[in-house]
């Protein structure tokens, strides 16, 4: 039984690595449709990765080893996160390595690595991007922590597999605090993954960019790894959201093949819906000025805290 768990763990990680660019491609496609543009094919991110991997890597003359190591570390951190977030089964040996709060730490590690690498070359844009990314980071962290605080109050655990198990054993109720937390979470997701109200993943407009400014100096395989890691980050965040708010269908204990196939189908359906929803949100909103970002994330924080308070006020008989 223990062995099979490791197998599922590996399957899940491989699945995440393989599916992540697809999600990015799907969101890009939906956005194009919504904006009346002809959409790039769904496999565009894979082609992009292939192209980048085969190109030669150009590295600045005075780049230090830190600059070249950062893409690998980034990718490693995101793969580890993918191993922790339950997507199709909950019986994951590595998921015990971290609860949701430790996951925030893991994402912070990746962020700091990337920011440091961006500062390594010593260009104006690199350090500007690093500074902005860290700023978004410290604004988002209180909000995401409060979201997980909500999850703890609702489910009595911050371990993601535990949350999913809780859903399975308790019939769901429409709790206002769940809705508040979900809204807050989506806002943080947009901010953390350089999506539209905060950053535009498709722009290289010099003065507004955040994420792109940090990776300007990367090329070839390094850039490919960073792009892949970004896709994985979005995938991981979406899966955290799914585990917290829409966990139906994830195989709980029955690691039989049929269950898992069903869970996989459910996962793909949910990802498709979530991706489309993200594209819709992005298409409906305008990019905020950088100094409106605190307002946006303060709003996310507010949602999460309201969820918490509403739960404390009226939570007494929710589970009754």
């Amino acid at each position: 039984m223990k062995g099979i768990a490791f197998v599922w763990q590996l399957v899940e990680v491989a699945l995440a690595i393989a599916l992540a660019p697809l999600l990015t491609g799907w969101i890009a496609q939906c956005r194009s449709w919504l904006q009346n543009r002809s959409a790039p094919p769904l496999t565009q991110p894979y082609r992009m990765l292939r192209k980048l991997f085969h190109k030669e890597a150009v590295v600045a003359d005075h780049a230090s080893p830190l600059f070249r190591a950062a893409p690998y570390v980034l990718f490693g951190a995101m793969v580890l996160a993918a191993a922790i977030v339950p997507t199709i089964v909950t019986d994951l040996p590595f998921a015990r390595a971290a609860d949701a709060i430790a996951l925030i730490g893991l994402f912070a590690t990746a962020r700091v690595c990337q920011a440091l690498a961006a500062m390594d070359i010593g260009t104006a844009f690199g350090s500007m991007g690093a500074r902005r990314e860290m700023m978004i980071g410290f604004l988002a962290e209180p909000a995401i922590l409060m979201v997980f605080f909500n999850a703890f109050l609702l489910f009595g655990t911050t371990a993601l597999p535990g949350v999913v198990d809780h859903y399975a054993s308790h019939p769901s109720v429409i709790d206002p605090s769940v809705i508040f937390a979900a809204i807050g979470f989506v806002m943080v997701l947009l901010a953390e993954n350089a999506r539209i109200p905060i950053d535009n993943p498709a722009t290289h407009l010099e003065l507004t960019m955040i994420h792109e400014a940090m990776v300007l100096e990367y090329s070839g395989r390094h850039l490919a790894l960073i792009e892949w890691a970004s896709s994985l980050k979005l995938f991981n965040y979406t899966c955290i959201g799914i585990a917290l708010f829409l966990p139906w269908g994830i195989a709980i204990h029955g690691t039989s093949f049929g269950y898992v196939l069903f869970a996989l189908a459910a996962l793909i359906a949910k990802l498709a819906v979530c991706g489309a929803a993200l594209a819709l949100i992005e298409s409906l909103s305008a990019k905020l000025r950088l100094f409106r970002a605190p307002e946006f994330l303060a709003l996310a924080f507010l949602f999460a805290v309201l969820g918490l308070l509403v739960h404390l006020l009226m939570g007494a008989n929710t589970s009754a």
């Binding site: 190591a69 570390v73 990718f75 580890l80 590595f94 015990r96 971290a98 371990a159």
Partner: peptide, 17 residues
């Protein structure tokens, strides 16, 4: 409820790298 393992963090990241 919650657990954390530095070993898995370090070894997993190093392995993947």
């Amino acid at each position: 409820q919650a657990s954390y393992s530095g070993w898995i963090f370090l070894s997993m990241i190093l392995c993947v790298v």
